[in-house]
């Protein structure tokens, strides 16, 4: 128990120091009064020291536990090599807000598009009837709007956001990658295209969400505040919004359930899904497989940085 020994030693040392200081201060007073005063001060100081030590050791212990856990993790996944932080905490939070809101929106919205489908009535009644499922739908809508605002601010205000946004812009290389990838699927070329931080698949997903959010939030707000909208626009504008909301919902749902789920859940590399959305980390192996150009870039940057350090 080296920690406890150290604690005791500290306590004794401090106790002696206080004793000495007290002796100096109370030397001129009558003995009975000085004894009472000394006892009082000693108790108070002891209490303060105990509290400080207690706090300091708990936080030390917590830190030690965290470090040990991380070390164990490293040991366990040693064969995977280093992990790279692909999505930061902010981005992961945005994704979680978005997918929970979209799930809510789909399960409360789709029954309205297919009222005769056998499960629709069950799903609506699950929320307690249409008057409550519409409230849940608006809660989902609120979350999606929050996500949109958060993402705008993230894109503008943070360095990672700005970098990712620029990397997500489609460029000519993506068209080449598509052709290359299809030729690869057909067996014409042996190797996959080498993707950077974002492959064309991820770029499509990103811009699909952009398009979907703008259409769904725009038309959804029309339908939410129908009387206020009709103050300025004719009734057929509301019908157009209704049509857009209903059709784009279908497109978004299909794209998510078929395309996104295939890419992140059902395809044999990922089945049944990874925890990338939770911890945001990708192993070196996966990076080499899926984002080789980004990995090279990271390695090159590290090389430059360490070279700079040694130069100094």
């Amino acid at each position: 128990m080296p920690e406890d020994d150290r604690k005791d030693a500290t306590r004794d040392a401090v106790g002696r120091e206080i004793e000495a200081a007290l002796n100096e201060q109370v030397s001129g007073l009558p003995p009975s009064l000085s004894e009472a005063l000394r006892e009082k001060i000693r108790l108070r100081v002891r209490e303060e020291i105990e509290r400080d030590l207690r706090e300091r050791t708990t936080s030390n212990r917590r830190d030690a536990a965290r470090l040990a856990k991380e070390a164990r993790k490293e040991e366990k996944h040693a064969e995977e090599g280093e992990t790279f932080l692909r999505f930061n905490r902010n981005f992961r939070f945005q994704h979680m807000v978005m997918f929970s809101s979209v799930i809510l929106l789909i399960i409360t919205g789709m029954p309205l598009k297919f009222p005769n489908f056998i499960l629709s009535r069950f799903v609506i009644n699950f929320w307690g009837g249409i008057q409550y499922s519409t409230v849940v739908h608006r809660i989902g809508a609120g979350m999606l709007i929050y996500f949109m605002v958060h993402h705008f601010l993230y894109t503008i205000l943070t360095r990672d956001g700005r970098r990712d946004f620029l990397l997500l812009l489609p460029r000519l290389g993506d068209a080449k990658d598509i052709v290359h990838n299809i030729r690869h699927f057909l067996g014409k070329v042996p190797d996959k295209p080498r993707f950077g931080r974002f492959s064309y698949i991820e770029k499509f997903d990103y811009w699909a969400v952009y398009w979907g959010c703008i259409i769904m939030i725009g038309s959804g707000l029309f339908l939410w505040f129908e009387t206020d909208v009709l103050r300025f626009l004719p009734k057929y504008a509301l019908d157009v919004a209704h049509e857009m909301h209903s059709d784009e919902a279908m497109l978004a749902t299909l794209a998510i359930v078929i395309w996104h789920f295939y890419n992140v859940h059902f395809n044999p590399d990922r089945f049944p899904g990874t925890l990338l959305w939770w911890h945001g980390r990708m192993s070196e192996h996966e990076m080499k497989e899926e984002h080789p150009l980004e990995l090279e870039e990271i390695m090159a940057r590290r090389g430059r940085e360490s070279a700079e350090v040694t130069d100094r």
Binding site: T227, L230, R231, F232, L233, P234, K235, Y236, D239
Partner: peptide
């Protein structure tokens, strides 16, 4: 509600 409700 206003007359816009009847447009369309």
């Amino acid at each position: 509600a206003n007359p816009n409700f009847a447009v369309g």
